[in-house]
Design a protein around this nucleic acid. Structure first.
Length: 859
RNA sequence: GGGCGGUUAGCUCAGUUGGUUAGAGCGCUACCUUGACACGGUAGAGGUCACAGGUUCGAAUCCUGUAUCGCCCACCA
């Protein structure tokens, strides 16, 4: 209650117009959101901000979840914490590559040399993309993402995020690349990262491997084809398949060991149709007697079950689908017959789709297709960003262990998940189910261009073949490195690709391999260890529920290996934004509303109000009605503040008057309860509850308390007495309310705060319930509640008679038990209700009843 | 097939460990230009808390089952 200026600047007509531009600049200049790194760990609240993908426009969903985090940041700051609230940009990976291709009309061809004078076509032609070198391509990626980041930052500022903009990073910048490479090299040195040649889920459009976490199922039409295999005894055995085009890749048939029908056949061989290849018949428990004919063909590789069978039954490899999704030219060696090789020749070079048609045609001709194919619909695995079904191709890839193959690592990671505090709590089960369901390690290499390269070279032997078993790695001090343009220590660039020389690893890391290190990147790991020790492990990881299996899990994995700890204490999971029809918003449906438009129409605080009314983990509909409510609330705060300051402002001295009146004390007692509740709610990451309770109190404060004390506050003695009590209470409450709203409505809160205080409300201290309890003395909230009830009854009577609220009342009679016992503020009620007379009748009834006698109407 | 979450007024949602007549806002209706606020205010109508059982003096709240919606996972021949 000190340092108040008496020269108030309360505008005549307060307004929200231009409020964002004004305060964004003020905050930027004052540095009110600056992180104070001199503070010790326990005085710091650190946030592992999600770096949004910089591949176009921000989505209203971003505004939603980032607002949640911002309310927490502001609360913690007001509680006295130094808040580490950085911002990152996720700019590597496929979304950026795709955007650059379309935006500039180019495509990357790594075989083309760098052209330092290249400039992109003036008018991009999507059908004729210009081929450019990898380095030129990456330059364009850098250029475009830099522009996008500026746009993003402006929206964030306008939304009022209290980020410290001195702490930003991009997942492709030198710092991030160095961190990603360093972490990888340490994983490699400890045996947590390894290279393996294995069947890999492969996207034929992007021509890259994809990880289990990036898969999704889509329903696709298909058909069962019944094929005749030939038994040694001249008989046939029929199998059903949805992938007849893989017949040439068939390496075995498989039936369940208990299946009587095929028991004799197991251990024998059969010949494939068309190609005449002899394949064994095997037994395996995964073969389902209920499916198809109960016996299946195993191909290398039609689906992940094939991979399991191939591995567990130790079958041959007979791959026919190449990296481009087409049937490879050379037939498998096992196809020896002339007819078989001829049939294969008709498939070589064809897409999977065409190959299927041709195989079916040939099977029809040969009579080995039994009946017509039966159409079905079944789920097929897709890369979540891809358009064609995944194939399984054997390739050499880098992996990081994640418990998918080691039970001890799995247990350790499950235990890390239990160390974390989850908000809401049930989100933990998503983490646990994902970890428990892993069926392989984390594939981190991608055959793409814009990303963090693997910091690894391979020596070439005398014939120019790489020795993958003896990778050459750089010193950490040299990071980041680009092995495709830099030579390893001890070699010169002219030895690249030569026998006895070296080759760089051509791949880049999956984007999650970098973003799984955001706490380390933002926190200055191995770059600014003083900072890192002050912020890590971080307090909060806010994020979406859809990326628990990717971002959250991967971050836990990296932190577990590198630091032996969880990366944060808590994680807050935001829900989806649904459009008003309760469907998930998506760009493809064209129902995305841009945040800027809404910020302009309703004000930033109004949009934040809508966002803050959505709880963590709960899907929330985009509701412009809520934004209207937020706008109305903001305007109400302007006007109520104006009123309080104009009526009570002159009493705002260093020595405020004592609050003596029961009604005033009652209001302050109720306020202390609200403060207590809002504080507890914020501490439990329940920002919605904090807002609801503050808001409810504020409306009652305006509707009832302000009306009741208005007359008393206007009149009364200047420095003592009932009037001074009202004015002191009004100022105390106003100060508290402005601070309670500050995390939610930062613009309007600082606006009204600035009318009568020095400094920003966002640097002010969070209200302390004890302070208000002390001011309230023995105040009983029931006095305010009861008096308000009577006032409401008076209003109701006037409203029913269709009278103005100014209408005079002849007499009000309040009946009930103990009604006189200081439960009703008599004088205030008479003034606010314009009652000539107020009487009490004590009855045995615990229920309160009110009679309002109005003048007889003229009519 | 397994799991997680939801189902409360026309709409969007609260309802804190079970405790009187279930709350708010929007929308709707009526009224009021009252000296903070017409970018207002006051009041009103509107709900068998998805359904069926059960526990209990008492259930929107706890238990069982069903329906339904959303999401996730699964070895999808």
């Amino acid at each position: 209650m000190t340092n108040r200026s008496r020269s108030f600047r309360v505008p005549d007509k307060p307004s929200l117009d231009g409020i964002e531009a004004k305060w964004v600049d003020v905050w930027d200049e004052s540095g009110v959101y600056h992180f104070d790194r001199a503070k010790s760990r326990d005085e710091i609240f650190s946030i592992d901000t999600p770096p949004p993908t910089v591949s176009g426009a921000l989505h209203i969903g971003h505004a939603f979840s980032y607002t949640h985090t911002d309310t927490v940041a502001r609360f913690q700051r007001m509680r006295g914490k130094s808040v580490f609230y950085p911002m990152g940009w996720d700019d590597n990976g496929l979304p950026t590559e795709r955007r650059v291709q379309n935006y500039y009309g180019v495509r990357c061809d790594p075989s083309i040399p760098y052209d330092p004078d290249f400039s992109p076509p003036a008018k991009p032609d999507p059908k004729r993309q210009v081929s450019i070198s990898r380095r030129n391509f990456i330059e364009l990626c850098d250029r475009l993402t830099a522009e996008d980041e500026k746009v993003f930052e402006n929206v964030w500022r306008r939304l009022g995020l209290s980020v410290d903009w001195r702490y930003t990073y991009a997942t492709i910048d030198d710092t991030s690349r160095a961190a990603a490479q360093r972490a990888f090299l340490r994983n490699l040195a400890r045996g947590e990262a390894y290279m393996s040649e294995a069947p890999t889920l492969w996207d034929v459009t992007f021509r890259t491997a994809v990880a289990q976490a990036e898969l999704e199922d889509r329903e696709r039409p298909s058909a069962f084809h019944k094929l005749a295999f030939h038994r040694a005894d001249g008989g046939q055995v029929h199998i059903e398949t949805t992938r007849p085009e893989l017949l040439a890749a068939c390496v075995a048939l498989v039936a369940h060991p208990d299946d009587e029908r095929y028991r004799d056949l197991v251990g024998q061989t059969v010949r494939t149709p068309l190609f005449g290849v002899e394949v064994p018949v095997k037994a395996h428990h995964l073969a389902d007697p209920e499916k198809g004919s109960g016996i299946a063909m195993i191909c290398t590789f039609g689906d992940t079950t094939d991979v399991t069978w191939w591995r567990e039954l130790q079958l041959e490899t007979r791959a026919i689908v190449g990296w481009d999704g087409r049937v490879v030219a050379e037939p498998p060696a096992a196809i020896t017959s002339e007819e078989g090789r001829l049939a294969y020749g008709r498939l070589a070079g064809a897409t999977v789709h065409t190959a299927r048609e041709r195989v079916v045609e040939m099977l029809r001709e040969s009579g080995e297709l039994i009946g017509d194919p039966t159409p079905i619909t079944h789920p097929v695995k897709f890369y979540e960003k891809g358009d064609k079904p995944l194939e399984i191709v054997t390739t050499r890839q880098w992996y990081i262990r994640n418990g998918g193959r080691d039970t001890d690592i799995r247990e350790a990671l499950l235990s890390r998940g239990r160390e974390l505090a989850w908000y809401p709590g049930h989100m933990r089960s998503r983490y646990e189910h994902w970890v428990e369901g892993l069926n392989g390690d984390w594939l981190i290499s991608r055959q793409r261009f814009f990303g963090v390269p693997f910091p690894v070279w391979y020596p070439l032997d005398g014939e120019g073949n790489p020795d993958y078993e003896a990778p050459i790695v750089p010193y950490e001090a040299a990071l980041p490195v680009d092995p495709s343009s830099e030579a390893p220590a001890g070699y010169t660039e002219d030895q690249r690709g030569r026998p006895g020389g070296f080759m760089g690893d051509p791949d880049i890391m999956d984007t999650w391999a970098t973003s799984s290190l955001t706490p380390q990147i933002a926190g200055g790991w191995e770059r600014d260890n003083d900072l890192f020790e002050r912020v890590f492990p971080m307090d909060l990881r806010p994020q979406g529920q859809d990326i628990i299996r990717t971002w959250l899990f991967a971050t836990v994995v990296r932190s577990h290996f590198e630091h032996g700890t969880v990366p944060w204490r808590s994680t807050g999971i935001s829900g989806w934004i649904l459009d008003p029809d309760r469907k998930k918003m998506s760009k493809s449906k064209g129902n995305v509303v841009t945040p800027l438009d809404l910020l302009e129409r309703y004000s930033s605080d109004a949009v934040r109000y809508w966002a803050a009314s959505g709880r963590l983990g709960t899907d929330t509909a985009l509701d412009e009605g809520q934004m209207k409510v937020g706008r109305r609330l903001s305007i109400k705060i302007l006007n109520a503040s104006k009123f309080v300051l104009s009526v009570a402002g002159e009493d705002a001295t260093d020595a405020p008057a004592a609050v003596t009146e029961p009604l005033d004390r009652a209001m302050l007692a109720a306020l202390s309860e609200v403060v207590e509740d809002a504080t507890a709610a914020f501490e439990a990451y329940d920002h919605t509850r904090a807002l609801e309770h503050t808001e409810r109190f504020f409306w009652e404060f305006c509707d009832d308390y302000l009306e009741l004390v208005k007359a008393r506050a206007y009149d009364g003695d200047a420095t003592t007495g009932a009037g001074a009590s009202a004015r002191a209470a009004l100022l105390i409450a106003l100060s508290a309310l402005q601070r309670l709203f500050a995390p939610f409505l930062p613009f309007v809160a600082d606006e009204v705060w600035s009318w009568w205080n020095e400094g920003s409300v966002h640097a002010a201290s969070w209200p302390d319930a004890a302070e208000f309890r002390a001011a309230a003395q023995d105040g009983d909230p029931a006095v305010l509640a009861t008096t308000s009830d009577v006032l409401r009854a008076v209003r109701k009577a006037k409203s029913e008679r269709k009278l103005s609220m100014r209408a005079e009342v002849e007499r009000v009679v309040v009946r009930g038990k103990n009604v006189r016992n200081a439960q009703v503020a008599e004088g205030d009620l008479v003034a606010a209700g314009r009652a000539a007379e107020l009487d009490f009748e004590i009855t045995g009834d615990s229920e309160l009843t009110v009679d309002v006698v109005l003048p007889a109407s003229d009519a």
